[in-house]
Design a protein around this nucleic acid. Structure first.
Lengths: 337, 337
DNA sequence: TGACTAACTGTGAGCGTTAACATTTCAGCC
DNA sequence: GGCTGAAATGTTAACGCTCACAGTTAGTCA
C-alpha cells in the first residue's frame, strides 16, 4: 500500500546528468544558477530534473560548503504572547532570506538549561543562534557562551557581551507611569513581574525613576509572576489600601487578574482606580474595562533580530544594541471617571 | 577581538584519531558507542575528543546514513493559544527522542501555502512532517501531499488520508451544550468560529446535534473569526434577542469579546445569561465572570502526534486516528443566577 | 584565415562520516 | 605451545555535492 516496486532511491545529480546527457557539473550549474549554461542545455537539464523529481541533497551540500542554512532559536517553553510572537517574527524574516529555523525549548531558563540548548543547536550545525532570554539567569548563561558562534539575544541587558535586541521596557514603563501622573494621581502603585526577569526589572525601574522625577513617593512594591492568578492575588492585597487611585501592572495577564479582584471587591475601574497594563495582547481591548496598555512590536523585534544575526554570520561587526520603541495605547481603564 | 590566529577548522574524526593514535574508525565507535573498544583506548580517544573539542559533523553523518534526525512542523503563523501549546508539546516529545524540530510558518493555510511549506521542509531532508492544519483548505492540501514522506496532521478530518491527532471537538461541544441544557435552558445559542476551520465545524456540529437529541430548537447561528473583536460583534447582535438565556461560544477569546458586549448592554452573566467557551486559556478563570469552558490537553496532543509520526518513520503502519478527550471546566459564567 | 577571447562544459578531488569487510590481538584450552 | 575464536582495531569505499581547474566550442577582429 505504501510502496510499490523497489525502494526508489532519491535521484542524484549524476542521475540527472545521465538522463540529460551532460556532466553532473552542468546540472549543478543549472540547479544553482551558478555559471553560464546554454539555453537549450538548461532546458534538457530542467526536463530531466522534472522527470526524476530531483531534489538537491542538503546534507551533501552542507558537507562541502560548510553551511547548513539553519538558524537555531532557544525559546522559552511558554505560550506567553510575547515569546510566541517573536518566534514567528524571526521565522518570517529568516525564511525570506532563505534560512530555516530550528527551535529548542527550555523549561526553566537557568544557566545549564540554556547551555544545553546551545550545545544541542551546535550539534545540528546551525549557523547562528537567537536566544530568547529575558531572564537574569539566561543572560548570565549567555555571557559564558562560546565565542565562535554568532549569537544574538532578545531581551537581555545592554551590558551583555552578545548583541541584544529588545523593546524599550524602561521607556514603556515611563510612558505608562507618566500617563497616570498626568491624569492627576498623586502617585502610582506597581504590580511587578517576577524578580528574575529582566523585563520585569526594567519596567519596575522605569516606574520607580519616573515617580522620583516627579517627586512622587513610591508605594510599596507588589510582585506577581506574569500569571492572571498572581495578578488576582496582588489585586486582593491592593483593595485593602485606602489611598489607591492608580496602578501600573507589569503585564496584561496580571492586569486581568487584578481587574477581577477589583470587580469582586466592588472597586470600579476607571471610576475609583485607573489601571495600565503592558504587552497589548489581542484580548486587552476587550477586558472589563478595556485596558490601557503598552504596545510592543514583537514582529519588528523578530525582524531586527534576524538582521543582526545575519550580520554576525556574514562576519561583520555587531550592530549597536537595538531598542524598539514601545507605544502607549489608551483605553477605558484610564478613562474619564 | 572576535578571532585570534587562523580560522581554526572544526576538528574531524581523523584529527581526533591522529591525536589519540588510533584509526578514525575507533574514534567513531567510541563517539557513537557502537562496537567494542578497550577501556584504555576509549579513555585515550575521549581525552583527544575533549582536547580538540570535537563535535560530529551532522551533515557528513546525514549524508552517509540518509537520516537527518530532523522533523518538520508546518505551523500556523498565529499566537493562538492552541497552536502555540501544541508546538511545544511536539518539540518536547521529539527532543526526548533525539529528534529536533524545524518549523515553517504559514500565513493563511491555503492549498498552495501548505504545499510550499511541505516542499520547503522536504528540501531540508526532514524525516517526517507534522502539519498543524485545522483548516479545510489545509486538509485538502494534505490529501495531495506526496506519499513517500511520513506525515501526520493535527486537527484534521478523520477521513483524511493521513493520520490525524485531534482533541475531540465534537464531544467537547456536546459536553458544553448538555451542561447548559442540564441547567434548565430551553435552548442554547452558538457563536461559531470561521466556517473554513474544521474545529469550528466540529464544534458547531456537536452543538447542533446535541440540541436535536434533546428536541431543542436550534436558534439562528452567529459566526465570528476567533478574535475577541468578532466575539464582541456577535455579542452586540445577541443582546437584541429577547429569549436569550444561554450561549456556547466557539472559543475563549470570542467569549471575552461577547462578555464585554453583554457588560456594556447591562446583561449580567450568569444572572441573565449563561456563557460557555472553548479552549480554557490561562486567562479564562479571570474573565468577568470566570468562564466555564472546555479544556483541551494540547501537550498530550503534541506527545501523541510525535508518537504517531515516529511510527510512520519507522515504517510501521499508521496507528488509528487518535482523539484526545476534552473536559468541561465549570466556573461562574454558568453558576447560580 | 588564424589567433585570441569569451562562453560553455567536463574532470577529478575531497568534504567527514559510516558500512562492510579485513586484519590483528589475546585469552582460554587441550 | 600451538589452535581457536571472540574481541579489538584497521582499511577501503562509498554517500552527493561543490570547488578549482582543464578542456572545448563558438565568436570576433585583424
Amino acid at each position: 500500500m505504501t510502496s510499490t516496486g523497489p525502494p526508489e532511491r532519491q535521484a542524484s545529480l549524476t542521475d540527472v546528468a545521465g538522463l540529460a546527457g551532460v556532466s553532473h557539473m552542468t546540472v549543478s550549474r543549472v540547479v544553482n544558477r551558478t555559471g553560464p549554461v546554454r539555453p537549450e542545455t538548461r532546458a534538457k537539464v530542467l526536463a530531466a530534473v522534472e522527470k526524476l523529481n530531483y531534489r538537491p541533497n542538503s546534507a551533501a551540500r552542507a558537507l562541502v560548503t560548510g553551511k547548513t542554512g539553519i538558524l537555531g532559536v532557544v525559546a522559552l517553553d511558554s505560550t506567553l504572547y510575547g515569546p510566541a510572537s517573536m518566534l514567528y517574527g524571526i521565522e518570517n524574516a529568516a525564511r525570506e532570506a532563505g534560512y530555516s529555523i530550528t527551535i529548542t525549548s527550555v523549561g526553566t531558563p537557568n544557566r545549564s538549561a540554556i547551555a544545553d540548548a546551545i550545545e544541542t543547536l551546535r550539534r545540528q550545525a546551525v549557523e547562528g543562534i537567537v536566544a530568547i532570554a529575558p531572564h537574569a539567569a539566561a543572560a548570565k548563561a549567555l555571557e559564558s557562551a562560546p565565542g565562535d558562534m554568532p549569537l544574538v539575544a532578545i531581551g537581555g541587558r545592554p551590558d551583555t557581551p552578545v548583541p541584544v535586541i529588545a523593546v524599550d521596557q524602561y521607556d514603556g514603563a515611563r510612558r505608562a507611569t507618566e500617563h497616570l501622573l498626568a491624569l492627576g494621581h498623586r502617585t502610582v502603585w506597581h504590580a511587578a513581574g517576577p524578580i528574575d526577569w529582566l523585563e520585569a526589572q526594567d519596567r519596575e525601574r522605569g516606574w520607580r525613576e519616573t515617580l522620583e522625577r516627579h517627586n512622587a513617593e513610591a508605594p510599596r512594591l507588589l510582585r506577581g509572576d506574569w500569571t492572571p492568578h498572581s495578578g488576582y492575588l496582588v489585586g486582593r492585597e491592593l483593595v485593602r489600601e485606602r489611598d489607591l487611585t492608580a496602578v501600573f501592572v507589569a503585564n496584561d495577564q496580571m492586569a486581568l487578574g487584578l481587574l477581577r479582584a477589583f470587580a469582586e471587591a466592588g472597586i470600579r475601574v476607571p471610576k475609583d482606580v485607573h489601571v495600565v497594563g503592558f504587552d497589548d495582547v489581542p484580548e486587552a481591548a476587550y477586558f472589563s474595562p478595556p485596558l490601557t496598555t503598552v504596545h510592543q512590536d514583537f514582529i519588528e523585534v523578530g525582524r531586527r533580530t534576524f538582521r543582526q544575526l545575519a550580520e554576525r554570520i556574514a562576519g561583520r561587526p555587531p550592530l549597536p544594541h537595538d531598542l524598539v520603541p514601545a507605544e502607549l495605547i489608551v483605553r477605558e481603564s484610564t478613562g474619564p471617571r
